[in-house]
Design a protein around this nucleic acid. Structure first.
Lengths: 335, 335
DNA sequence: AACGTTATCGCAAACGTTTGCAGAAATTAT
DNA sequence: ATAATTTCTGCAAACGTTTGCGATAACGTT
């Protein structure tokens, strides 16, 4: 019923707790015979050291905190998977928190992780995180911090990102090269860095091709399917149809996709679509969607590697690194 | 840089640590004025209690361990999301481990959670978990345990499941009622309980309709897309085509779906398809797939609720509960 | 024979909290 | 005035582990 302790073993053997501790860690001071007896008893009673006590003593845990907007979102669950993979092999476990795209909850999550004395934090911020004080206190306490995908732009910490502007630029330029010229952009929340950068890439691609941007064609919304659906719905209602859509991410693209199909329009003949992230689903809809491949699993892995490197470099405060991963345009039949 | 402690505050104020502790927890013994001074200093230095020390003292943590086969699998990420949601509101955090469908890794994960002294564990076992000794030691230590979806059948612990046999029976009976009579079943690993039960439901539906089962039509495989693809490929190669397929889960159904499309066969005219789980993707392929809705998020929530109830009922060992959630056949155009 | 080595082990402190108990100070009752 | 309360605070132990240091005994060395 109860967890057996080092002291329990010591008592049973009539020796001291310190000897047991050393025996279990194969300390040279301890006689082979003693080690054997200790080991045997430990095995017999399935002794597992209390990591709580170890953490308190060593003043360090082997837990990595992870904060994401939504666990069930394809991109994030895949990234979490990558983080776990690296953490597992390095002997760490991960505590996963979701902010539900909510600022206050992100703050609570952050404080909770500090409270737990995690060894480090990997985070991707919520879409309405403006203030970054909570992350500032993380840094101030000397807790290693790595952002991935969505970072606080006013904080100089390590991050694993992609070149959002360039990726968007390439995607839109591709659309233009395919003959699409009335291209709409379904963008995300105005204050979210990735939204801004992707919008920026979209605009640059248009202007480089000497195509004027059209106000109606820049549709602000959230990051979910419903947002894409609504934006498309709006364009249909005002009867101002683009010949192509570049969406801020795949769920938004899928939402638009559905509304287009409902309207009886043909993809890619009437309207072309490009998404962003290469969610699995984009390959399976009909027609499959052209999208920007964003290496989610890889981003998770690299973030974790970076973080663990920071954790284990002890006190020498490594200066912030930024890793920019390559994206690639996956061309399918929606364009 | 460092975390501030209760003793630090005590020293600054020239009082004892115990007074600070009591002041912070609003103990009636402490003078209002003292409380105020303590609180002020605590706020000023962003004091956060060290939960490691608290856990050691109280002999309990507020961490729930979660073990799933694969984080990025739609069903599990959604369940994890549900678990986190409930845990968050009850003041717990979750440690998430993935077994990658690998038995040894599941054992390592389990031991790691014991090592961390988690307050309880929610688990869904890997597809090649035969031995359940590792979970037995969890129970033996008095650590609350709840299985969801995939449980160890030889262990009498709480679980949140669906009626797999009945759900399969309903799905196949529906196919029969639609006029399909040469129905194949793409099943999962032989030893996995959910595979067995769904196969059982499939067989019963056939036999109740007086339809003989055909050996070729029971195709064993894994739980991934590739498995469905391969099974379908096999049937095409031996030129023994069914008029409908009931797949053990959605990824397998999607795999079959792809191979069918490649073969130029029409869905549902030439071949009908029914999946299992109602992954988001099934609604978006063309034609959308008929599938069994398995409430993943809800299963996660209920598991967490059950677990927390067990944790907080302290020592009185509640006897194992089994919660069976309703499924429902979502009829779409693939049948 | 006296000393220095080596091998083996235990004591005690420390990590940051919580909490029973005792003690001091302030207040009230006699 | 003293005694009895009440109000407030500190001491010390405990949670399970690690680790510097000292202690003991059994050696080998001159």
């Amino acid at each position: 019923m109860k967890h057996i302790t080092i002291t329990d073993i010591a008592k049973k053997l009539g020796i001291s707790a310190s000897t047991v501790s050393r025996a279990l860690s194969d300390h040279p001071d301890i006689k082979a015979e003693t080690k054997k007896k200790v080991q045997q008893l430990a095995d017999e009673f399935y002794y597992k050291p209390n990591s709580i006590a170890q953490s308190l003593k060593n003043n360090r845990t082997t837990i990595i905190g992870v904060i994401v907007p939504e666990i069930k979102h394809d991109f994030f669950s895949s990234a979490i998977s990558g983080i776990e993979e690296v953490a597992y092999h390095a002997g760490y476990t991960i505590i996963v928190c979701q902010s539900n795209e909510n600022f206050e909850r992100e703050v609570v999550n952050t404080n909770s992780l500090i409270h737990q004395r995690v060894a480090g934090i990997v985070a991707s911020i919520s879409q309405d995180t403006i203030n970054s004080d909570h992350f500032r206190t993380v840094v101030a306490r000397g807790i290693p911090l790595v952002f991935f995908d969505r970072a606080c732009s006013d904080l100089d910490v390590s991050k694993v990102i992609i070149d959002d502007a360039k990726s968007a630029y390439n995607a839109v330029s591709y659309l233009i090269s395919k003959g699409y010229h009335r291209i709409a952009h379904f963008t995300g929340p105005r204050d979210l860095e990735i939204s801004k950068l992707r919008l920026q890439g979209y605009l640059k691609a248009l202007s480089d091709a000497l195509i004027p941007s059209v106000e109606d064609f820049i549709c602000y919304g959230g990051l979910h399917e419903a947002d894409g659906y609504n934006s498309m719905d709006h364009l249909i209602n005002i009867n101002h149809l683009p010949d192509a859509i570049f969406a801020v991410n795949d769920p938004v693209a899928i939402g638009a996709f559905q509304r287009i199909k409902e309207a009886g329009l043909r993809i890619p003949q009437d309207i072309g679509i490009v998404g962003f992230s290469n969610n699995k689903i984009t390959a399976l809809v009909d027609p499959p969607l052209t999208t920007v491949n964003q290496p989610s699993f890889e981003m998770g892995k690299r973030s974790a590697e970076l973080l663990i490197e920071m954790i284990e470099s002890e006190k020498l405060p490594t200066l912030p690194k930024t890793i920019v991963l390559d994206t690639e345009l996956v061309i399918r039949n929606s364009t």
